[in-house]
Design a protein around this nucleic acid. Sequence first.
RNA 1: GCCGCUGUGGUGGAAUCGGCAGACACAAGGGACUUAAAAUCCCUCGCUGGCAACAGCGUAACGGUUCAAGUCCGUUCAGCGGCACCA
Length: 810
Amino acid sequence: MDKYDFNGIEKKWQKYWEENKTFHAEIDKSKPKFYALVEFPYPSGQGLHAGHPRPYTAMDIIARKRRMQGYNVLFPMGWDAFGLPTENFAIKNKIHPKKVTEDNVRKFTEQCKSFGWSFDWEREIDTTDPNYYKWTQWLFLQFFKRGLAYKKEMAVNWCMECKVVLANEEVVNGTCERCNGEVVRKVKSQWMLKITEFAQELIDGLEDVDYPDRIVYSQINWIGKSTGAEVDFKTNAGETLRVYTTRPDTLFGSTYMVIAPEHSYVEKWASQLKNIDEIREYAAKAARKSDFERSEIAKEKSGVKLDGVSAINPTTSKEIPIFVSDYVLTGYGTGAIMAVPGHDQRDWEFAKKFDLPIIEVVVGHDAHGVPSDITKEAFVLDTDEGTMVNSGFLDGLGVPEAKAKISQWLAENKLGEKKTNYKLRDWVFSRQRYWGEPIPVVWCDSCNKWVAVPESELPLMLPEVENYMPTDTGESPLSTLESFINTTCPDCGAPAKRETDTMPQWAGSSWYYLRYADPHNDKEFVSNEALEYWLPVDWYNGGMEHTTLHLLYSRFWHKFLFGIDKVNTPEPYLKRTAHGMILGEDGEKMSKSRGNTVDPNILVADTGADSVRLYEMFIGDFEKTATWNTQGIKGCKRFLDRVWALSEMLKDGDEYSEKLAGSLHRTIKKVGEDIEELKFNTAIAAMMAFVNEVYSAGEINRAELKTLLVLLSPFAPHLASEMFEAFGFGLVHEQEWADFDPELCTFDEVEIVLQVNGKIKDRITVESGADKNTLLAAAKANEAISGAISGKEIVKEIVVTDKLVNIVVK
RNA sequence: GCCGCUGUGGUGGAAUCGGCAGACACAAGGGACUUAAAAUCCCUCGCUGGCAACAGCGUAACGGUUCAAGUCCGUUCAGCGGCACCA
């Protein structure tokens, strides 16, 4: 059999597409638009790895199909090029990060083009390009001007290895997400973005978009909304101590209180505390620990009782002790809790250890019907079913009623109020590194405040420096560059100093989908016209690892921009899907150190881009993790060779032949539907099955081949384009997507399973759509059936049209 | 610990609403072609027994619902991902 010259064909068509700008999109109001987006890559020195082609090919298939369905498709690509690896590589090899980025981008571009993805290269963007980061800076200033970017002294996560501040989201098990280096706590002044202001909107918006449940859950969990109340407890030190609780109904059961070791009252009360030294020592110990260590040793509760200050439970008027303990966090709620050991497992453990009273105030049973027993463990409600006891005026009420009544009582007595809390923290937005967008603000001593760099002076260029090594003091490399730092105040003209921190890598990727709509605009970050036509993104596919952070951050920016009328939709992405990771052949995550990485470009050189594209889609369920197997590509290559060789059995014909029409219509239906559901693997299987059928038939006509090539073209565009042209059908990307007739998808004859008592006895072939009586009669006429039921009593007869007959006998 | 997901041949994986388990591939075995090999084409391919027709078993384990369960329900086990003292 003739094999096709994939090398020549692929180069030919890539050149054609590039020269003709085939996939370049312009606003065209006569056509419906479709904006397909993939996560733009970080151009690392290693080039593309086996994981990249999976999502890109998937969206390419969808984009190509949409074009054939008459949509004006925007399918852009760019580079998320700021970031630590480039900077570290630059330091190690003494090459400027700009040069490193340029080299890497060149390599990535070339590799992307060799896969034949139908990106609009006219819209390529690069987050490190001043023409791009000008607008990232401009966007930061919009936050700043509205008080949503602010500077704050805070304990931050400091990576000892990278010498950089990390967002909470970037700390994994107490180590740096990127380098696995140790992370410690350090107090620094940091730029923050007020994402918390949008917490509720970020939850509500999820109802208007089409995201898979697992992504919705992860967003909601990350935001972590809870409702409850804040309650004031009087203390004998004078101050009232305010706590946050989700269970105000259990107030009668609160037998002690706990404040975080960092709580400001510790020092406020210092003179009244007889054991202040012991408390300070405990607090110092807690502060030294990273969050990770703190939770590591937290299996055993620890704490110190305040000797000299106590509180009064407002419901029982009983005096209760106050403790410091690191199981109470300073950053959540008020940094103080009322402990209800009967109904909170952490409080219960603490009470056991310090021998504190445990009072039962709710009785009920758990989801399995086991009655509550607070001598064994705290009774925490997993349903709303519980009855109040030992709770004065709440006795006998159900929990929801008790919550309402106590809230009212607290309000009437001015002891507290309802309160909603979120786990979400504001976003730490500064990094003490070189390779990022400079934050465009200056500190003016005479104004005594941070002043925005005027928008007319943007971009604030990242200066060329000799040495971009991070400093051990935790200051940015820019901090040593006098010519950069020293400036004048835009407000008053007095000498002022520039901010030397840069933005995190998330900044550029938080709005890139907007820039793609209008990438060369030097007046605005995006024009209204482009926004109105292209936005929102219709379908955004990316990795599961970006479904909390990147997705949340970019939704936050978008909601902010919507609020100030800079974008026209409340959500940026209508539909989001996530692909599974590709593991190495050993079933482990691909990594250089394991030596199990796969270079897709070598495979492209060996078997052609179309084969690799096909294999990446055939490997398994797109949304699940898949294990790489280089052997598997062979099957896909073989299939394409078989398609190529169909020319040897080609016959004339303008209409589908009787022999193949049915299965071709079914294949059209299956491939079309499967693409929409991301079931690329079964779509390919369907095309393989059709080709196998053609081989059995020994012939295919021109009309049939043409349709097959249309179906195959999004998957293997080079081969399909070449054959399409060779047989005089024209340009496949200008073809309309194939239609099917639902009536022709059905079979004339179907095989019916004959069962007795659910056991298969025989199979018969009957006309499709035969009615139940006919089927039953045919079944009873069957020898195997009549033999099995003779002399027995028929209890039940089940007939499923086109499927089976089951006769139940006794 | 909590939340989410997954468990099917030697392997990757298929299987709308519960209705023939194993589509489509890889690997393996056999045959044709060839001086030979590769490639290609054709056949076999869940397990057990049988020359065979065929019979029995089989979707992590156990139990349940049903005429019928990979699919629904319960319990358990294993693996993966996320969160992890959030009051």
